[in-house]
Design a protein around this nucleic acid. Structure first.
Length: 643
RNA sequence: GCCAGCGUAGCUCAAUCGGCAGAGCGGCUGAUUUGUAAUCAGCAGGUUGUGGGUUCGAGUCCCACCGCUGGCUCCA
């Protein structure tokens, strides 16, 4: 007998080998019908897999938050089965087929053939058939050596490679009809349990993500328990496409990219420059409040500086160089060496620490042409970069300060974000004990501030461990923005010291950090996040005045003058077009407020306002409007004051 | 760089089997003086990404190059 503990705390004595399905049936018929799997001691479990130990069991139903993990994984098997039916099982070599955030994928090699986009609908048809067949899905285990033989016989060379690396003595397989796959599971009890899916795209992907390996073909798809959810997700993808910053950017005259002249290096148009400048103004305010000193350093510096910093050895591939009078210069890919030179230009006492230099530093990094992506992945960008020079016992406090500043800087945008602590990579400078000390300091700061974080082993920069902050954009994609990197090594290389209370030299500790990360990328994220409808404080044009006819231009000019005096970005649209036309046109430019001025307003000395959210407000007092909009702008509100 | 797809007017797209390169929007000109998401008329706009090939004839078929898009570990 085994003890089964249920979520409500009841404990049941059950036969050894009882399955979650049986447990569910005992509880209620309704639960049994909706059950697709279980969580056994916190591990996802097949509905029909026996439990032969004491365990806490929670039944996972089709609408459980853990359910997608199960049915999308099964869907990826169904897709693999369909691909094998389509091309012939002996022609298809399977890679891996995991669940990802909003769906799943599977990697294939089709011997002697290429999967094309036209194949996807046909594969979808075959998948529907497999779902209709409602094949039972069975789990079985094999000893490792037998498993290897089994997969070798099927010609599944990639699977053989995977099995060889598994540390257990036995490995598990899942079988549905003629299809068998190496898999940890769990899976649905049969292929008929989930019906709503869509294959989304086809892409190349190297086996195990390594470009020295063969390239496989990856099919992405998604699946949902309810038809409505699938439709909503597909709608969201369409919506995301509409807000694509690469489309909205040029359309709203924010930026352009001339791929012929400067691939990966955006040009910012007058309106885009306003947004960037507002972002910088905001950032600058908070940094100065927080004790940072702004500096400006050269873009091009002698290559010997980069030899000393170690960038030459570790980062050369990503750097641009230029040569004059027989001297080699590098265009800076990072701002740290420049800030170090400033720090070293005077003698610093322990009483001065921490010293915090801040710069909107424009850096250039060569990225391979295939990875460039609008403003999100560029070759030239501006970091809101700072370096904190402090003593070892100040580290925790300073890291905490940075984390709090990050929160303040993100707050007006309404993003959710998460943190990730990255540890020592293979290619690194300095010895391990220094690294572990640095990692510990970062961890302490995170723990004390109570921020949740994940650990990414071996993902640190070559000069130190780091905490990355990922924010989520409208498509649900995550972008790395803020980063805090501890660095015990650069101070060694440059011999960076302060004078202690003992009147002796001590090594400083350096903290690199950026919050927007790249202003360009952050701008891109904002365009998509707001779908181009920026909060008023960021909007390139905050108010547009529309005189109904020519005879209202004078009154309009008078109003415009008053708005300008108040520092509001205002334009007048007195084109000889109909009122309807001009309203529509300005609405599409996502200008927050339109002031419509005609006979009525002029005689009453009032204004009428139409917001980009389609609301009308008649006969408002101008002074009142100005003071309220100023309040909205100065508080960097995300919402229009007129709703 | 690699895999798949795509390059036609500023933008969105059309052009049957290889048979006269077209439409809407935008732009410009003129008329219209407008009350809350598109007034009417006219005009201009192209070496169909570039180069080569097949053909009587190529936007369309073939080859090379350039560019763009989606992706290239979220480790069974």
């Amino acid at each position: 007998m085994v003890k089964i503990t249920l979520p409500d705390g009841t404990v049941k004595e059950c036969e050894e080998g009882i399955t979650p399905a049986e447990i569910a049936r005992e509880i209620s018929e309704g639960l049994f019908r909706k059950a697709i799997g279980a969580e056994v001691n916190g591990v996802l479990w097949d509905l029909n897999r026996p439990i032969d130990f004491d365990a806490t069991v929670r039944i996972v139903t089709i609408d459980d938050e853990k359910a997608p993990e199960i049915y999308r994984h099964t869907m990826s098997h169904i897709m693999a089965q369909a691909v094998m039916r389509y091309f012939g099982a002996d022609k298809v070599k399977l890679g891996i087929g995991p669940v990802i955030e909003n769906g799943f994928y599977y990697d294939f090699e089709v011997v002697g053939k290429r999967i094309t986009e036209e194949d996807l609908p046909k594969i979808e048809e075959l998948m529907k058939k497999i779902i209709k067949e409602d094949l039972p899905i069975e789990r079985f285990e094999l000893p490792k050596d037998e498993a290897i033989k089994f997969m070798e016989e099927k010609g599944q060379t990639y699977k053989v490679e995977l099995i060889k690396e598994i540390n257990d003595d036995t490995v598990s397989f899942y079988k549905q009809g003629e299809f068998v796959d190496l898999c940890r599971g769990p899976h649905l009890p049969s292929t008929g349990k989930v019906k709503h899916f869509k294959l989304l795209s086809l892409a190349g992907a190297y086996w195990r993500g390594d470009e020295r390996n063969p390239m496989l073909q990856r099919i992405y798809g998604t699946a949902f328990a309810k038809k409505k959810d699938l439709e909503e997700y597909l709608k969201m993808l369409k919506e995301a496409k509409k807000r694509d910053h690469r489309k909205l950017g040029p359309q709203l005259e924010l930026f352009m990219i001339d791929t012929d002249v400067a691939p990966g290096m955006p040009f910012f148009l007058p309106k885009g420059a306003i947004v960037l400048n507002e972002l910088m103004k905001f950032s600058r305010e908070l940094h100065i409040e927080d004790g940072y000193k702004e500096v400006i350093t050269p873009l091009v510096m002698n290559v010997k500086l980069w030899h000393q910093s170690g960038h030459w050895d570790h980062y050369k591939e990503n750097m641009y160089f230029t040569e004059k009078e027989g001297t080699m210069y590098a265009i800076k890919p990072m701002n740290c060496p420049g800030h170090i030179l400033i720090f070293k230009s005077s003698t610093i006492s322990y009483r001065d620490l921490p010293v915090k230099y801040f710069e909107f530093g424009k850096v250039h990094r060569y990225e391979r042409s295939g990875v460039l992506h609008g403003l999100m992945r560029v070759r030239a960008f501006t970091q809101d970069d700072a370096h904190i020079f402090c003593s070892e016992d100040q580290i925790e406090e300073e890291i905490k300060g940075v984390i709090m500043l990050i929160d303040r800087i993100y707050s007006p945008f309404g993003f959710t974000y998460r943190a990730e602590l990255s540890t020592m990579p293979e290619d690194h400078m300095g010895d391990e004990s220094v690294w572990r000390r640095a990692e510990k300091a970062l961890q302490n700061a995170l723990d004390k501030i109570g921020l949740e974080y994940k650990i990414a082993e071996g993902e640190g920069a070559f000069y130190g461990p780091k905490i990355d902050f990922m924010i989520k954009d409208s498509i649900g994609r995550e972008w790395q923005c803020a980063t805090v990197q501890l660095d015990f090594l650069m101070p060694e290389r440059f011999d960076v010291n302060y004078i202690g209370a003992d009147n002796k030299e001590h090594r400083v500790v350096m903290i690199h950090r950026a919050i927007f990360g790249s202003l360009e990328r952050f701008f891109g994220i904002l365009i998509e996040h707001f779908a181009g409808a920026f909060p008023t404080w960021l909007a390139p044009v905050q108010v547009v005045i529309i005189p109904i006819s020519d005879r209202h231009v004078n009154y309009s000019k008078e109003i415009m003058g008053k708005l300008e005096e108040s520092g509001i970005r205002v334009e007048m649209d007195d084109r000889r077009e109909t009122l309807g036309y001009r309203i529509r046109d300005n609405q599409m430019k996502k200008i927050p407020y339109m002031l419509i001025l005609g006979d009525k307003e002029e005689s009453e000395r009032k204004i009428s306002v139409r917001t980009r959210e389609n609301k009308e407000f008649k006969s408002l007092n101008l002074e009142d409007f100005i003071s309220k909009i100023l309040k909205e702008i100065n508080s960097r509100s995300r919402e229009l004051y007129l709703k």
